[in-house]
Simulated assay, not measured.
Amino acid sequence: MTTDGGAPAPLYITGTGTALPGDPVDNARLDKVFGISEEWTDLFVGTRTRHFGWDLGTGEVLHTLADLCTEAAGRAVAAAGTDLQDLDFLVLATTTPDRLLPTTANEVADRLGLDHLPTYQIQAGCSGAVQALDLARALIASGHRTGLVIGGDVTARFLDPHRTPADLPAQELVNYVLFGDGAGAAVVSARPDGEGIGVRALLHRFTGRGRPPGQIIDWDGPVRRAPGRTMLSEDYRTIEAEVPGLAGEICWELLDTTGWAPEDLDFLLPPQLSARMTRHIVETLDVPAAHEVSCVADTGNTGNALPLLQLDRLVPRMTAGERALAVVVESSKWIRAGLALEKHREAEPNR
């Protein structure tokens, strides 16, 4: 199930769930609160709404990462029809844990009533959900039966409601319109129970040697008060230039691994940095037979949650035998990642 050869270990996604905090925040609201031009956001970013776990007026945190991940996980477990006590492991991927210790993964396990099982927390950007599935594959190949994969991010520590555009350089300002908060989860198994979407190939590869990062998120803490320190910066122009080409490499490598042709694809889950960039990437990939499954225009970029939010939208649309590619690019230090998915086809009964 990796692109490095060898017999693939079976991995199936049997249930998915998501969580988005509060009401959607549209571009008019961002314009009113931060003075960020609604017309500029519509034209250059294309994202219509996003959700925040904090109050735009006061900055008060209303939904933590643990809140969102627990909610998404509960929905995924219910969708899979799995008993919580049957879970053998939990893997959580995030850029923005609620604190260093205890880990958000263990906070979520506690809230779900889980105990006596291995838990893992992966520090990652947008590719984290794929990295978590890669770890889940290894755990299932080692003998575990069923596990829970979660991805999520929150922006409360990095977007300041008291700043104005006049205070912000462009590499900070763009983050106020790109990002939103959210979490997604998937129950995974060695058996095609529930939804039974098989992971036929999985790509996760660091490709950033010698390349400057496209995004930097600095550490939180007292040093944040240092004058001129930037907590969150985005080299949007470089990302816009590099991601389409990387997405094409991912797409063709996954097709080569599975032996599928472009016309065999029923669905495409493209990278989700912004709605405008997603449209450009889909046009560049040129797989016209595949139906696009995107969410970024409605949710904003939710980081580690994004592939799982897309997957949650894909699940009710897939029928037996249909195929999909999920393409993920992490621009913080350039990771190529992706999934080749196929809806399980029940074997014909003996006659």
Results as ranks from 00 to 15, higher is better:
T3E: 11
G5K: 04
G5C: 01
A9N: 06
Y12D: 02
Y12V: 00
D23P: 00
D26S: 07
D31T: 00
G35M: 06
E39C: 01
E39L: 13
G46P: 10
D55M: 09
L56P: 07
T58R: 12
L65Y: 07
D67R: 01
C69E: 03
A72I: 08
G74A: 09
V77Y: 02
A78I: 06
T82I: 12
F89Q: 07
L90T: 09
V91R: 06
T96F: 10
P102T: 10
T103F: 11
T103P: 05
A105C: 10
G113M: 04
D115K: 13
P118A: 12
Q123N: 13
S127Q: 06
V130C: 11
V130E: 04
A132N: 04
L133D: 03
L133I: 05
L135D: 04
I140V: 15
G147K: 05
L168R: 04
A170S: 14
N175Q: 06
Y176P: 01
F179D: 03
A185F: 03
A185I: 03
I197F: 08
V199N: 06
R200L: 00
F206S: 14
G208H: 08
I217R: 04
D220K: 12
P222L: 12
P222R: 11
R224S: 13
R224K: 14
R225A: 15
L232H: 13
E234N: 15
E240C: 12
E242T: 15
G248A: 11
W252S: 14
D256G: 15
T258N: 08
P262C: 10
L265N: 01
L268Q: 02
L268V: 07
S274D: 05
A275D: 13
R276K: 15
T284P: 03
V287Q: 10
D298M: 08
T302P: 08
G303M: 05
P307G: 02
Q310E: 15
V328F: 10
E330V: 11
S332L: 00
A337R: 03
A337F: 08
L339S: 01
L339A: 02
E348S: 14
